[in-house]
Design a protein around this nucleic acid. Structure first.
Lengths: 258, 258
DNA sequence: CTGCCGCTTATGGTCAGACCGATATACCCT
DNA sequence: AGGGTATATCGGTCTGACCATAAGCGGCAG
């Protein structure tokens, strides 16, 4: 490079689609991030596509590899790309599955000063609120799958293998019955950090499993009967017990037992 | 560093607090990210604190500045730190305000293949679901602020300055009445991407402003009267109209009018 | 002929040292 | 004493290099 060394910043105002956000950053890497983001938004880059290698990308965009790498780190942290090393490796656009965005949210939540109590309450509101939609839209396949799941969980319970992840899976599957990806993702992310917060609670209250799976079963049948009120009532009791357990764990921790 | 050049990776197994996540990454930068994250989690680093400079950080941790920078990029993208340039600049731990995490979520949502319709529906569920909590917990101050806000919005409406951001602010303020940060953040993030999706709709239906602010006012009074059912009814109508508007916009776009 | 092992190659991960631009502080001159 | 400038600090970027990883290919041995 001959003249680029002198002026590393302050070019390319880039008045692309982002008219709404004030690009206050003079960072080249940020410009690259925005450019690739807009490519993904515009579906010129689709999930599974491979970006050019770092070296080629830098060459094409007139920046050094370091700068490209910083941009890729940001995109990776945002869950938009996944990076594989080795030959034929590189940056691949991730399929934005609900789990991926869910984990991103979960990470943010777990690092923010939210209390488990707050998250639990939000979860209660949401999971309760979607029940009318679940009851309305659940297909025969949905219900069959839920029944199957409950049966498996009850079997696992007998083997002493039932745990929080299974319960979380049930709730997410219920949310999926809304056939609304946004709702499913939300519920999924609720269960991420909660799962961690409640690990001890689960160990401390193992017998909750039986009651929990029974309630799950009853809930599925209420949905099958298209009985909104009964479904709501069951879920309310179910979630309420979880909330109280969370409160108890928090109290123990506050007393220095954590 | 004298011998470190030869072995850039594969040291420091770091069995710190993260017993739950399998650190499959051999990246030094990732290890740094985790280390700083755990410092923030453990509140050894508090919002407003300044991290050492990149050079010092690299020196202390035995890595190069590039590696440190990549770690900082990730932390910044995750909304955990903010970077200021110039003397006395550096990386500062951000106070994880609800808006910050909200924008992170909003970004993820806007880049995922969610439709505005889906997000709107989720928003309806949630904002409707929190109303009992809002009515129960809203303090006199909350209600006074809401009234003040409505008055300002109506004044702005007369001046032709009422817009989507104000409406969003109202809904977020209502959510804040739950005094639950998680709920507030959720509502806030709902309004991020929606605001963008609906910009045209707002322009296309300017008269919606009058009806909207009137409904806002009525809603506040219902909350002041602790009348859950009335508040729910008003909000249901209010959100329902928004949902229909979204559907219309989507339909127009599908016909190629976007 | 077949299967395993090592080489080649593409690609990400890291390092070292350097320079530029931004910014806050301190100092100096008026 | 006040305002402007010098300087130190710190992030942003560049360059060129080397290492680690992993996929593909080819040769060697069974």
């Amino acid at each position: 490079m001959t003249e680029g060394t002198k002026t590393p910043a302050k070019q390319t105002p880039r008045p692309d689609g982002n008219l709404y956000t004030v690009v206050s950053s003079n960072r080249m890497s940020e410009a690259i991030v925005e450019q690739i983001k807009s490519l993904i938004r515009g579906e010129k880059l689709r999930p599974g596509d491979r970006l050019p290698s770092e070296r080629e990308l830098g060459e094409r965009m007139g920046v050094s590899r370091v700068t490209v790498r910083e941009a890729l780190r940001v995109l990776e942290a945002s869950g938009l790309i996944e990076i594989r090393v080795g030959a034929r490796g590189g940056a691949f656009v991730t399929s934005p599955s609900s789990s991926r965005i869910g984990t991103g949210l979960a990470d943010l939540i777990s690092l923010s000063p939210l209390t488990a109590t707050e998250v639990t309450e939000a979860r209660q509101v949401f999971e309760l609120g979607i029940i009318p939609i679940v009851v309305e839209r659940a297909t025969a396949d949905d219900i069959a799958e839920l029944r199957e799941m409950v049966a498996q969980h009850q079997a696992a319970l007998k083997r002493g293998e039932y745990g929080m992840p299974m319960s979380a899976a049930f709730h997410v599957r219920v949310a999926a019955c809304t056939h609304n990806t946004a709702i499913e993702m939300l519920v999924q992310s609720f269960h991420g950090p909660l799962l961690m917060s409640l690990r001890e609670a689960q160990v401390a209250a193992p017998l909750m499993g039986h009651r929990g799976t029974t309630e799950h079963r009853d809930f599925v049948e209420a949905v099958a009967d298209r009985d909104v009120e009964r479904a709501e009532e069951i879920m309310r009791a179910h979630l309420g017990r979880t909330a109280r357990r969370v409160a108890r764990v928090r109290a123990s921790r506050a007393r220095g037992e954590g």
